[in-house]
Amino acid sequence: MLDQTAVSQIKATLRKSIENNEVAGASFMVIKDGEEIFYHEDGLADRETGRPVERNTIFRLYSMTKPVTATAVMILLERGEIDLFDPVSQYLPGFKNQHAEANGGLVPVEREMNIHDLLDMTCGLVYGGTNAAGQATEALFREIGERLLGEAPLGTVEAMNKLGEGPLAFQPGTSWAYGTSADVLGAIVEVVSGMRFGEFLQKEIFGPLGMKDTGFWLPEEKRGRLVKTYASEQGGMSLFTGNHLGIIHQMDREPAFESGGAGLVSTIDDAAKFTTMLLNQGSLDGIRILRPRTVQYLTSGTLNDRQQPAFDAWHTMSGHSYGNLMRVVTDTKITGILASPGEYGWDGWLGAYFGNFPQEGLTILLMIQKKDAGTTPLTRKLRNIVMSTL
């Protein structure tokens, strides 16, 4: 259990953040050795109606979807259905004959992008930017967005084949950039499994783990639990309702494009089932999702010496490396937070966050819903309080 001083500090820190209009509301959970030792909720899920954040409030995960996608890939790996050095074009022909940026122009790739490149984001795919790769990616997401609610929306595999036709920011394997690789991985899972990505996740992960409120959309009876999203503005917060990265914000229909990089919604309890499964070496309550050796590989990936400098430019990720769609702590002396060697996790665009700490048998989960959030100062403050008690 956390001592009373730490509990009071956590509650006061979260309350101050709400009063300062940094977040509208939040859920925060700490799990130790598989047992919940702390849970707290505060603030509003809907400021307009006064609906509070509750334990079963549903949050958009955005990039906290990525570790789920990496887990799906590992399921295929340990069954012998894929090889991480398979070229992406083996599954998605749009990735054949790619070109990469070099010296202001485009040149043929020196080798094909493979699944391993996608998992480590060393493939040359990006989310946006002024370069050719970024502009092509933004154009694709505009097309996905324009067709999102129409009669002919782009599906997962179709969209990713189109992505493959655009240029890469660099030669596969030579650097690192945060980008769309998890979306491509979702499409590969779809091709290999012969079922829609969401069906695969439900059959292989969500169903077995009892994650009953996790998926790519919400039936009508659950939509009243979906949290509203807010954006910071001078002196306050404003409601945000826009679709982003091909995600239908209202989550009110089954999407054609199931984004392995950003598409899931979940509750804090569902997320805890997934993170506890990983920390428990692949099983939860007698249900095995992955074998222990596979989990160890999944959660310990790092970049090589050629790739790491590009990741080091992300200054709040000092002391970390990256692998299998997650951050991994490599040097606690320079992290800028109280950290643990080998801890891993990820966050999302709207602020969903998890960290697993294998040495301590600890999980920290935070759910907020704020535009452009990622890992916020509030996130770091709360985890520092917890880590200081260990």
Rank of each mutant, 00 (worst) to 15 (best):
F311S: 03
R327F: 12
N324T: 10
R327W: 11
T299L: 09
F311V: 00
P309H: 01
D312E: 15
Y322V: 06
T316K: 13
S300V: 08
A313P: 00
S318F: 05
Q308P: 04
V329M: 10
L303D: 03
R327H: 10
H315N: 06
L303A: 02
R327V: 07
L325E: 09
Q307G: 01
L303T: 05
M317W: 12
S300P: 02
N304V: 12
T302P: 00
Q307S: 08
Q308W: 10
L325Q: 15
T330D: 04
G319E: 07
T316Q: 10
D305E: 15
S300M: 01
S318R: 12
V329H: 04
L325G: 00
H320A: 10
A310R: 05
D312A: 10
D312V: 05
G301S: 05
D305L: 14
T316R: 09
S321A: 02
Y322T: 00
M326L: 09
A313K: 14
N324Q: 11
R306N: 11
T330A: 03
A313F: 03
G319A: 02
T330H: 06
S321N: 03
H320D: 08
P309K: 00
L325I: 09
T302N: 03
M317D: 10
G319W: 05
L303N: 02
M317K: 14
L325S: 06
S300Q: 11
F311I: 02
H320K: 14
F311P: 00
T330C: 11
G319M: 11
P309V: 05
D312T: 05
A313M: 12
Q307Y: 07
D312F: 00
D312G: 01
L303G: 04
S321R: 09
S321L: 02
A310V: 01
D305S: 14
P309W: 00
G323Y: 04
M326I: 13
A310Q: 08
G301T: 11
H315M: 10
G301H: 03
W314I: 15
Q307C: 04
V328R: 15
Y322K: 07
M317P: 00
S321T: 15
R306A: 14
D305I: 08
T316N: 10
S321P: 08
T330M: 12
T299K: 07
Q308M: 09
V329W: 01
R327G: 09
S318Q: 14
A313Q: 13
V328G: 07
T299C: 14
Q307N: 04
S321Q: 05
T302F: 00
V329Y: 08
R327D: 02
V329T: 14
R306G: 08
T299A: 13
M326P: 01
Y322H: 03
P309Q: 01
Y322Q: 06
H320Q: 14
G323Q: 05
